[in-house]
Simulated assay, not measured.
Amino acid sequence: MSKLPDLEALAIFAKVAETQSFSGAAEALNLSKATVSKAVSRLEVRLGTTLLHRTSRRFALTEQGRGLAARAAQMVAEGEAAEAQALDQSMNPRGLVRLAAPMSFGISYVAPALPEFLARHPDVSIDLHLSDEVVDLVGGGFDCALRIAALPDSSLTARKLRTIKRHLVASPEYIAQRGRPQDPEELSRHSCFGYAYLPTPNTWKFRHKTDGREVMVRPHGPLRANNADALTASLLAGLGIAEQPDFFHWDDIANGRLEILLPDWELPRIDLHLVAPGGGPRPARVTALMDYLAGRFAGPLWPGDTGGKRPG
């Protein structure tokens, strides 16, 4: 006997016992009468016992058949209930969604966006994981993630939400003390902060907006971190220069606490993506959250923001 029970034959037998008829069970299950008969015979051979007596005029369950019919009917009912519950969860937003997002973007934008979603979907809960490190969605059991990075080819499905511009910034105090660089090559004489998760953390790449000239420099300075927030205090204290995304320091720039350096040069842009494991259909709770995040983050995120683009 195989280790797994013959669930199909048990379900068919339960329907035969319920309808007291092979033809009735066949009609109820949308099967042929021969298929129903073979399933019951297969079950009898497997169990080594007779489950029912049948003639052209008489249909009767044996003692073993009556006991098995009750258990089989219970099994079918539990299976139907489990399937109905799973179907309900797949059709209606309900249950836990595990979401990963970058730390600074998650605190400043994702977390403030969640109350509205949770109010719309009271049966959904969210486990929000914040880290600038690119997490393994499948291995970590995440349903979806927001990523600000160039995405390598993978089995993940990805939806681009917007382009993220990066600026070279410093405080007015730093510029007053150390001068304003006029060319990327001058950065070798300046104090530059590092961010561990840049596409090329040890090299800053610049492209001139007018003539297309490209320059690469290797920054050096007293501070390197794996989160942009950790650079803010030293930036505002006038201790150095850093690459920063537009969504993070737009307010400091608008209010004069930081200034954009080398405005004729641009750093490589990166994109905000919404990613999820590939494969079959997603539960309604995951689809609802992904659609909500896409609508929330594809448009303007702060006053004067023109970088958002609706997904195509």
Results as ranks from 00 to 15, higher is better:
residue 204 W to A: 03
residue 297 F to M: 15
residue 121 H to D: 05
residue 212 G to D: 03
residue 255 N to V: 02
residue 144 C to L: 15
residue 234 S to F: 09
residue 238 G to H: 07
residue 1 M to N: 10
residue 309 K to G: 06
residue 246 D to K: 07
residue 188 S to E: 00
residue 58 R to E: 13
residue 224 R to W: 05
residue 306 T to M: 10
residue 252 D to F: 12
residue 107 I to M: 04
residue 194 G to V: 01
residue 215 V to A: 08
residue 308 G to V: 08
residue 63 E to T: 09
residue 47 L to E: 11
residue 117 F to C: 06
residue 65 G to E: 00
residue 10 L to Y: 06
residue 157 T to G: 06
residue 173 E to H: 02
residue 304 G to F: 00
residue 132 D to V: 10
residue 37 S to T: 11
residue 247 F to H: 10
residue 65 G to W: 12
residue 99 L to N: 07
residue 249 H to T: 14
residue 230 A to M: 09
residue 93 P to N: 03
residue 258 L to N: 06
residue 123 D to Q: 14
residue 141 G to E: 06
residue 136 D to H: 04
residue 193 F to I: 10
residue 2 S to P: 14
residue 99 L to I: 05
residue 175 I to L: 06
residue 124 V to T: 08
residue 222 P to T: 01
residue 275 V to G: 04
residue 82 A to D: 12
residue 52 L to N: 02
residue 208 H to W: 07
residue 285 R to H: 07
residue 27 E to A: 14
residue 190 H to C: 01
residue 219 P to W: 10
residue 231 L to N: 09
residue 302 W to Y: 15
residue 47 L to W: 01
residue 185 E to C: 01
residue 108 S to F: 06
residue 220 H to R: 15
residue 159 R to Q: 15
residue 19 T to A: 00
residue 120 R to C: 06
residue 184 P to V: 01
residue 238 G to A: 07
residue 302 W to F: 15
residue 250 W to E: 00
residue 106 G to A: 05
residue 100 A to P: 04
residue 95 G to H: 09
residue 260 I to K: 14
residue 222 P to I: 03
residue 56 S to N: 09
residue 27 E to Y: 07
residue 96 L to Q: 02
residue 43 L to M: 07
residue 110 V to H: 07
residue 184 P to G: 00
residue 281 P to W: 12
residue 226 N to P: 13
residue 192 C to I: 01
residue 44 E to I: 12
residue 115 P to F: 13
residue 150 A to I: 05
residue 17 A to C: 02
residue 156 L to M: 04
residue 245 P to F: 03
residue 3 K to F: 10
residue 225 A to F: 02
residue 160 K to A: 13
residue 46 R to K: 11
residue 5 P to N: 01
residue 178 R to Y: 10
residue 100 A to V: 11
residue 219 P to H: 11
residue 69 A to I: 08
residue 36 V to P: 02
residue 175 I to D: 00
residue 79 G to A: 12
residue 260 I to M: 05
residue 43 L to Y: 09
residue 169 V to Y: 08
residue 308 G to S: 08
residue 172 P to E: 04
residue 180 R to S: 13
residue 294 A to N: 10
residue 14 A to G: 15
residue 203 T to G: 04
residue 268 P to T: 05
residue 247 F to M: 00
residue 248 F to W: 07
